Measured scan of single mutants.
Amino acid sequence: QKPVSAYALFFRDTQAAIKGQNPNATFGEVSKIVASMWDSLGEEQKQVYKRKTEAAKKEYLKALAAYR
Results as ranks from 00 to 15, higher is better:
residue 13 D to H: 06
residue 55 A to W: 05
residue 54 E to K: 09
residue 44 E to C: 12
residue 6 A to M: 05
residue 21 Q to V: 05
residue 15 Q to V: 08
residue 62 K to D: 12
residue 23 P to A: 05
residue 59 E to A: 09
residue 23 P to M: 01
residue 47 Q to T: 04
residue 29 E to Y: 04
residue 32 K to V: 05
residue 22 N to E: 03
residue 16 A to Y: 02
residue 68 R to I: 02
residue 55 A to T: 11
residue 11 F to H: 05
residue 53 T to I: 09
residue 8 A to Y: 03
residue 47 Q to H: 06
residue 57 K to D: 13
residue 28 G to L: 08
residue 32 K to W: 03
residue 57 K to P: 08
residue 14 T to A: 05
residue 23 P to C: 02
residue 3 P to L: 08
residue 37 M to V: 05
residue 9 L to T: 11
residue 4 V to T: 10
residue 30 V to K: 01
residue 33 I to V: 08
residue 15 Q to S: 02
residue 7 Y to M: 08
residue 12 R to V: 03
residue 19 K to Q: 13
residue 12 R to A: 09
residue 64 L to Q: 15
residue 28 G to V: 09
residue 20 G to A: 14
residue 67 Y to E: 14
residue 27 F to L: 13
residue 38 W to G: 01
residue 52 K to M: 04
residue 16 A to H: 10
residue 66 A to F: 03
residue 68 R to T: 12
residue 51 R to Q: 11
residue 56 A to S: 08
residue 56 A to G: 11
residue 64 L to R: 14
residue 20 G to V: 13
residue 22 N to R: 11
residue 40 S to A: 12
residue 7 Y to L: 02
residue 19 K to M: 13
residue 1 Q to D: 15
residue 20 G to M: 06
residue 40 S to W: 01
residue 9 L to E: 15
residue 11 F to M: 09
residue 31 S to V: 05
residue 9 L to N: 01
residue 9 L to F: 05
residue 65 A to N: 14
residue 14 T to K: 13
residue 61 L to N: 10
residue 52 K to S: 08
residue 44 E to N: 09
residue 66 A to H: 14
residue 1 Q to W: 05
residue 43 E to P: 13
residue 66 A to W: 09
residue 54 E to I: 12
residue 36 S to E: 13
residue 40 S to Q: 12
residue 39 D to Q: 12
residue 21 Q to L: 07
residue 58 K to C: 10
residue 26 T to K: 03
residue 10 F to T: 02
residue 5 S to A: 05
residue 45 Q to P: 02
residue 25 A to Q: 05
residue 56 A to W: 03
residue 41 L to R: 01
residue 61 L to A: 14
residue 53 T to A: 14
residue 22 N to Q: 07
residue 5 S to F: 05
residue 12 R to E: 13
residue 62 K to I: 02
residue 7 Y to H: 07
residue 59 E to S: 08
residue 28 G to K: 11
residue 51 R to E: 15
residue 40 S to D: 06
residue 15 Q to G: 02
residue 26 T to R: 06
residue 23 P to K: 04
residue 11 F to L: 07
residue 63 A to Y: 08
residue 24 N to H: 13
residue 40 S to E: 12
residue 12 R to W: 02
residue 31 S to T: 09
residue 56 A to T: 11
residue 45 Q to L: 03
residue 34 V to I: 08
residue 34 V to N: 02
residue 1 Q to N: 15
residue 17 A to D: 08
residue 32 K to T: 11
residue 15 Q to M: 10
residue 11 F to S: 06
residue 42 G to V: 02
residue 29 E to Q: 02
residue 59 E to C: 04
residue 46 K to S: 01
residue 30 V to S: 02
residue 16 A to R: 12
residue 10 F to P: 02
residue 64 L to M: 11
residue 52 K to T: 04
residue 2 K to H: 12
residue 62 K to W: 01
residue 30 V to N: 00
residue 57 K to N: 13
residue 43 E to Y: 13
residue 62 K to E: 12
residue 27 F to Y: 13
residue 13 D to Q: 03
residue 31 S to R: 10
residue 67 Y to S: 15
residue 54 E to D: 11
residue 12 R to P: 00
residue 7 Y to D: 02
residue 64 L to C: 15
residue 53 T to G: 13
residue 65 A to T: 14
residue 67 Y to W: 08
residue 15 Q to T: 09
residue 8 A to K: 12
residue 26 T to M: 00
residue 37 M to N: 09
residue 61 L to C: 12
residue 51 R to G: 11
residue 51 R to K: 13
residue 2 K to S: 13
residue 41 L to P: 01
residue 26 T to A: 06
residue 4 V to Q: 10
residue 42 G to E: 12
residue 48 V to G: 15
residue 5 S to L: 00
residue 21 Q to D: 09
residue 40 S to M: 08
residue 46 K to W: 00
residue 55 A to N: 12
residue 66 A to G: 14
residue 37 M to Q: 09
residue 56 A to C: 09
residue 34 V to S: 02
residue 9 L to D: 07
residue 29 E to R: 02
residue 59 E to F: 03
residue 59 E to V: 05
residue 46 K to F: 00
residue 54 E to L: 09
residue 59 E to N: 06
residue 37 M to F: 04
residue 16 A to N: 13
residue 28 G to Q: 08
residue 14 T to I: 05
residue 51 R to Y: 07
residue 16 A to W: 05
residue 65 A to F: 09
residue 55 A to D: 09
residue 20 G to N: 10
residue 46 K to N: 01
residue 35 A to M: 06
residue 46 K to T: 04
residue 22 N to L: 06
residue 45 Q to K: 13
residue 51 R to C: 10
residue 23 P to R: 03
residue 41 L to S: 02
residue 22 N to F: 05
residue 46 K to E: 00
residue 27 F to E: 15
residue 2 K to R: 06
residue 18 I to T: 01
residue 2 K to P: 06
residue 44 E to Y: 00
residue 30 V to P: 01
residue 65 A to H: 10
residue 34 V to H: 00
residue 33 I to R: 08
residue 62 K to M: 07
residue 47 Q to A: 09
residue 24 N to A: 07
residue 8 A to H: 14
residue 36 S to Y: 07
residue 39 D to M: 07
residue 24 N to C: 05
residue 54 E to Q: 08
residue 23 P to N: 06
residue 41 L to E: 00
residue 2 K to I: 12
residue 34 V to M: 03
residue 19 K to C: 08
residue 57 K to E: 13
residue 26 T to H: 08
residue 52 K to V: 02
residue 27 F to G: 10
residue 17 A to M: 08
residue 14 T to H: 03
residue 32 K to Q: 05
residue 11 F to A: 07
residue 30 V to F: 01
residue 9 L to M: 11
residue 39 D to P: 01
residue 32 K to P: 00
residue 31 S to Y: 08
residue 60 Y to L: 04
residue 23 P to L: 01
residue 39 D to C: 11
residue 39 D to G: 07
residue 27 F to P: 15
residue 21 Q to F: 03
residue 41 L to N: 00
residue 17 A to E: 10
residue 28 G to E: 15
residue 34 V to Y: 00
residue 19 K to D: 00
residue 40 S to I: 15
residue 39 D to Y: 06
residue 8 A to R: 11
residue 68 R to Q: 11
residue 15 Q to E: 10
residue 7 Y to N: 12
residue 38 W to L: 00
residue 57 K to R: 08
residue 18 I to H: 00
residue 5 S to D: 14
residue 3 P to E: 07
residue 27 F to V: 12
residue 27 F to D: 14
residue 62 K to F: 03
residue 31 S to I: 02
residue 27 F to K: 15
residue 67 Y to R: 15
residue 46 K to P: 00
residue 68 R to A: 10
residue 12 R to I: 06
residue 36 S to T: 13
residue 20 G to T: 13
residue 50 K to A: 08
residue 6 A to S: 10
residue 66 A to L: 12
residue 2 K to Q: 04
residue 36 S to P: 02
residue 38 W to N: 01
residue 29 E to N: 02
residue 68 R to H: 08
residue 11 F to Y: 05
residue 5 S to N: 14
residue 24 N to E: 12
residue 21 Q to K: 13
residue 22 N to A: 03
residue 63 A to N: 14
residue 35 A to K: 11
residue 28 G to C: 11
residue 3 P to M: 05
residue 7 Y to T: 01
residue 37 M to K: 13
residue 40 S to K: 14
residue 28 G to A: 10
residue 67 Y to L: 11
residue 12 R to T: 08
residue 42 G to L: 02
residue 47 Q to E: 11
residue 14 T to E: 05
residue 61 L to I: 11
residue 29 E to D: 07
residue 64 L to E: 15
residue 3 P to V: 08
residue 1 Q to K: 15
residue 35 A to R: 14
residue 18 I to C: 01
residue 62 K to T: 11
residue 15 Q to K: 09
residue 40 S to V: 08
residue 63 A to D: 13
residue 49 Y to H: 14
residue 16 A to T: 11
residue 63 A to T: 12
residue 13 D to V: 04
residue 54 E to Y: 06
residue 31 S to P: 00
residue 51 R to S: 11
residue 38 W to R: 00
residue 21 Q to N: 13
residue 57 K to G: 09
residue 61 L to K: 15
residue 65 A to E: 14
residue 53 T to M: 11
